[in-house]
């Protein structure tokens, strides 16, 4: 059990893929103008990353070393197609708003990276948990950015107006530039936190 919680903690906080290694930023920025979009996207990424981790780990003994990347890509792409079809059926408006970014989950380096560096070397159960953790780490960043962008840009959360009439929508936050500023600030905070964290550890 310990190692499962450790896998979760490692991906979400210690080695958050977005903030620490700047992976998977493309989609992280594009879908965060509204929280609903970010939430649906997060679910999609968690689903794909967990199941592709599991699948890659299950077939890892039967795949040839030289074509493993191709295999992983096929596995990921199949799950993304599943997600795409489900979204089109159940939430067509959101599917339309997400546009090409659902398909771009395939080239999300986080999923590929976890498949290659973790699922390829570990048994299925822990790979599954690791996949969920990587997805959650990504989602956490996504939701934080979306929270601020929707709150400041539209004065609402999940489409529900929370700030009163006195709030003038801050347009910069809802255009692409706002996303860049938000992630820049987040990375800054994360780096600062890590520096102090490790700094203290060194002193100890």
């Amino acid at each position: 059990m310990m190692k499962y919680t450790k896998a979760l903690y490692d991906q979400i906080i210690e080695n958050n893929p977005v903030l620490k290694r700047s992976l998977g930023i493309c989609s992280a920025l594009a879908v965060t103008n509204l929280m609903v979009n970010a939430f649906v996207m997060s679910l999609g990424v968690i689903f794909v990353s967990a199941l592709s981790g599991l699948t890659v780990s299950l077939i890892r003994k039967y795949t040839d070393r030289h074509i493993r990347i191709l295999f992983q890509m096929m596995v990921i792409a199949s799950y993304v197609i599943l997600v795409d079809i489900c979204l089109k059926f159940y939430v067509p408006e959101i599917s339309k708003a997400l546009g090409p970014y659902v398909g771009l989950i395939i080239t999300n380096c986080i999923i590929m990276g976890r498949c290659e560096s973790f699922a390829q070397l570990n048994p299925p159960a822990i790979s599954f948990v690791d996949g969920i953790a990587a997805g959650l780490g990504y989602s956490a960043v996504l939701m934080v950015i979306a929270f601020f962008r929707e709150l400041l840009g539209f004065g609402s959360l999940f489409g529900i107006h929370v700030l009163g009439d006195w709030w003038r929508n801050w347009g910069t936050m809802s255009i692409p530039a706002g996303a860049f500023f938000m992630i820049g600030i987040l990375v800054w905070i994360a780096t600062d936190y890590n520096m102090h964290h490790t700094g203290r550890r060194v002193v100890k």
Partner: peptide, 20 residues
């Protein structure tokens, strides 16, 4: 600039200004 902003952080902020 602040230590924590160096590298990736400032790149994003600059990209934001470029986008503007």
């Amino acid at each position: 600039m602040p230590e924590g902003l160096k590298g990736v952080g400032i790149t994003f902020i600059t990209a934001g200004i470029m986008a503007l």
